[in-house]
Amino acid sequence: MTQTRTPISLGDEIPAVEFRLTRDTLVRYAGASGDFNPIHYRDDVASSVGLPGVLAHGMLTMGVAVQSTVRWIGDPGRILDYQTRFTRPVVVDPDSGATISVAGKVAQVDDESGTARVDLTVTYNGETVLGKAQVQVRLVSA
């Protein structure tokens, strides 16, 4: 197939996206991922271990956050590397849920290896919840 290259330049900003997580989202992710830790869907269990409420799975936040980059480059197969630290929990209210905001910026472009690094800023209630969230993408499609 023809090789297309998305023009990616240093400093490019990825359109900011908001994702709303509800208790339904958590249950769906539990089923899809196989992570049935009850702190992600039971208030009584969450409070019994001293948590402020039911939390989103870190891996759900990580998986959702990268979707903004996937949307931007148009192809999930061009993600070469993705890493993050889980720095703060996302508490998901039973009624109002939780809205996470994802912004991103191209922090590095390496023409030699044909890759770029996108740094994500993921916030909930104005606080960063993922640290060092970095996505390495391939500049050219397969």
Partner: peptide, 30 residues
Amino acid sequence: ARAVLSDSPINFDLDAAHAAGYRDLVAPPT
């Protein structure tokens, strides 16, 4: 893909995956 709120056709639609050069649906990054 639904669980991580993906809307990428390459996760869902075989024709879209083929058009992008893959032999089948591509899994989300995580």
